[in-house]
Design a protein around this nucleic acid. Structure first.
Lengths: 337, 337
DNA sequence: GCTTTCTGCTTAATCACTTAAGTTGAGTAA
DNA sequence: TTACTCAACTTAAGTGATTAAGCAGAAAGC
């Protein structure tokens, strides 16, 4: 059950391995007749190139890396990542490129993983998600010459392509909507404060609050879990000037809020409006169903993968913006009491 | 920014590349002094072996493949896979082994992916999840000589290690519990009927129903989605001899059932008891919270990964059973009306 | 003193493939 | 006829490791 090599094809076709290589790679130097013969034999014996041998001669390894720096239980609960991965995969597998996945506990481990993958020539490039503030990874990639696509805001002065969504605009849309229906005390339950997009959203939220001259606009940071979402909600709802609307940075926490409101006998949406920062069936399934910011995450992943392929094949490095999340009003939001 | 090779180390140390190889691999043939010198230089210049070159000489490539044959939206919604992957990863990354992930739409694509990965020498072995009935993959692997770990029941006559949980026992536990609290009409909303573990569970369910002499024990198959779960529930709840308890093959559908019951003004748990086949925060978050079969999925993934590593390093192929899921009674189940 | 046995290396082949450079033979131009 | 060009190959070097085989020098055994 030995794997066939180009030498086997060469023997069968009665030519040299060099000729086989040219034929299989669609390069000039072999006659159409010979080429057809070689291709036919290759197909017949089920030949596939050894990426090991190919990458040894400096070619691409046809693999890209994705590192997730989040704890297992958070990853499991949030539909985002799996959908994102599905999107990435749809493009990669269509281009015969493998996805190397690593789940690591922290930032240092993430850096380490990238270094190792690159040093071992395992990947052609890496997808950088969950950028945190002052993240050194873009610089690390630039410095090591590793092709990378940033999933998030483009970095000034670095030649890495970014695929980003306008989080600030999405936050604005939510606040505008809530203000329009009469809310003046709006709170924000944010995700990990170290993440860049959390900071962008929080800044946008505060700017919007100022612009509208809101009575109060507290922000509480969490780790995206149900527990911390519930805890933050409890704190907000038992405070002196309790908000009439709360926005959450994901779906899990918004749903947790529903529980807490129920527990405190605060009616949603009559006394409290709730908005989720991610949409999923989780939001639909609730009573009341949860108003959410929706976006096509599978498509997001696909665009990121395409940007990666473009980068390694043509060196294109343009930033690309995905459509801004749209607000899907459901039963959890209503006019302020 | 060229990557250092053993030739660089050899030059610096004033020895041959052969000596460097022996030193770096901890093999005899170099003096302790030379070995230390070589290791020091390797560490200093940040040398890492090129897996391409290594695998060319027949060594392991230190990567394993995982293929998920489910649609993107199902993957996104079910916490199972991401948690499973996290568990797999925790063991693999500790052993400096990469995880190659591919998401494919159907069975043929899954076979194809395995073949390609193997032919391209990208992987040392493959994790086989979601075994369907009469699945050809174990035979395919055996035939191609690909090391594989089966996530599911061991196959007769094949030398592939399996890591499995006793699904039948878990189903028995659920039925016993429901019967104990007085239910005589119990329905089962199953997952994909083509999956082996669905068939095992359905068989166990029907056997348990016979054993207890239940009045009715209908089974409806679905694709695990919220929609089909809701639809199946609607059918059951509007049928002539409506069940007093329904068990679901995952958490998403059990939660969907809650919605349907609400919509039909059927009170849970007073008029209807609901049990979820997977546990997650989704179950906890509901009103009422959902009774569920809980198991440690991260640990499951970790055991599978360990079995894979054992297989490729020592050729060990024992089947291993993970703890049976335990029933966690919550507010969605109560005595039969 | 001579052979044998180690130790600690080096040398060179090998893995599967790419590719620059060389070769061959046919066709074309002068 | 001779020189030249070109297509269609072949040859061989290189890629970064591993590893069997070889070899020099020192120590040990007789």
């Amino acid at each position: 059950m030995k794997r066939p090599t180009i030498a086997d094809i060469a023997t069968r076709a009665g030519v040299s391995t060099g000729a086989v290589s040219y034929a299989l790679n669609g390069r000039p130097g072999v006659s159409p007749a010979t080429r057809d013969k070689i291709l036919a034999i290759a197909a017949e014996i089920g030949w596939r190139p050894s990426i090991a041998a190919r990458s040894l001669t400096g070619a691409r390894v046809h693999a890209v890396g994705l590192i997730l720096a989040r704890p297992a239980r958070v990853l499991g609960m949030e539909p985002f990542f799996m959908q994102f991965i599905s999107g990435v995969e749809s493009v990669l597998s269509a281009n015969r490129t493998a996805l190397l996945l690593q789940v690591v506990p922290d930032h240092d481990a993430a850096d380490e993983a990238v270094r190792f993958w690159w040093a071992e020539r395992r990947i052609d490039g890496v997808l950088v998600t969950d950028l945190w503030a002052h993240d050194q990874r873009p610089e690390l990639l630039a410095q090591l010459g590793i092709p990378g696509v940033i999933v998030g805001s483009p970095r000034e002065g670095l030649d890495l392509p970014a695929v980003w969504s306008d989080d600030a605009a999405a936050v604005d849309a939510v606040v505008d909507y809530l203000v329009t229906i009469g809310h003046r005390r709006i709170a924000r339950v944010a995700g990990l404060p170290s993440l860049e997009h959390t900071q962008i959203r929080t800044a946008a939220f505060q700017a919007a609050a100022d612009r509208h001259g809101l009575e109060s606009a507290p922000v509480i940071s969490t780790d995206y879990t149900w527990e911390e979402g519930a805890q933050a909600t409890r704190r907000l709802l038992t405070s002196a000037d309790r908000p009439t609307a709360i926005t959450y940075d994901n779906d899990v926490m918004a749903v947790a809020a529903l529980s807490v409101a129920h527990e405190l006998a605060i009616s949603v949406p009559d006394q409290l409006s709730i908005v989720a920062g991610d949409d999923s069936q989780l939001c639909l399934v609730q009573h009341p169903s949860v108003t959410a910011l929706a976006r096509d995450i599978v498509d997001y992943g696909a665009r990121v993968a395409q940007a990666m392929l473009d980068l390694v094949s043509d060196g294109r490095t343009e930033a690309q913006q995905v459509p801004t999340a749209t607000l899907v009003p459901r039963a959890s939001t209503a006019a302020a009491p």
